[in-house]
């Protein structure tokens, strides 16, 4: 009887582990990465209406060094946990975003991401950073030169759970 109970407990544990494993396997993040071109200029800041949600940041220092903000591209990425997607920046640098993991706890849903930007000609990584971000939060990467200005990448992700 004791053996049967033990076996049942082990079987139940195995089922729970499999269920948990299945749930983990289905973790998917959708990421939005607007790629903005910031250019110098005069007068009031001109901000592309498609990036209105970034206006709060772009109208404050240090972004006031530029006046014209145009959305060049917008990457919409769907990433499985542990998966990556590579996209090309307008300055021909490949950028790779990896969904490293996801943590859920009281009052928090956090996503761990890695962003790598490569320099193909010089064969090195200009940037390789890993960070943890609130779901739907944004982190800005600024400074990659492009066409008399710089590029701004605004990385933001959400999971389906």
């Amino acid at each position: 009887m004791r053996l049967a109970r033990g076996a049942a407990a082990v079987a139940f544990g195995a089922v729970m582990l499999l269920a948990a494993g299945g749930a983990r396997a289905s973790e998917t993040a959708t990421c939005d990465v607007p790629i903005v071109h910031a250019l110098p200029g005069g007068g009031a800041a001109q901000i592309d209406p498609r990036i209105d949600s970034l206006k709060t940041y772009l109208t404050k220092p240090p972004f006031t060094a530029w006046h014209d903000f145009k959305l060049l591209n917008r990457e919409s990425l769907t990433l499985q946990e542990g998966g990556s997607a590579t996209f090309m920046l307008p300055n021909n640098r490949p950028a790779t975003l990896t969904f490293v993991g996801h943590s859920v706890g009281p009052n928090e849903h956090r996503i761990r991401l890695r962003l790598v930007i490569e320099h193909p000609e010089k064969q090195h990584r200009v940037l390789d950073t890993t960070f943890t971000l609130d779901e739907g939060g944004v982190v800005l990467n600024v400074g990659h030169r492009h066409d008399n200005g710089v590029l701004i990448l605004a990385v933001s992700c959400k999971t389906q759970n």
């Binding site: 940037l127 950073t129 890993t130 960070f131 971000l133 739907g136 939060g137 944004v138």
Partner: peptide, 14 residues
């Protein structure tokens, strides 16, 4: 968008 970002590692070359 809100934030709450913790940078764990940051490496650059050039």
């Amino acid at each position: 968008p809100q934030n709450g970002c913790d940078i764990e590692s940051l490496e650059t070359v050039g």
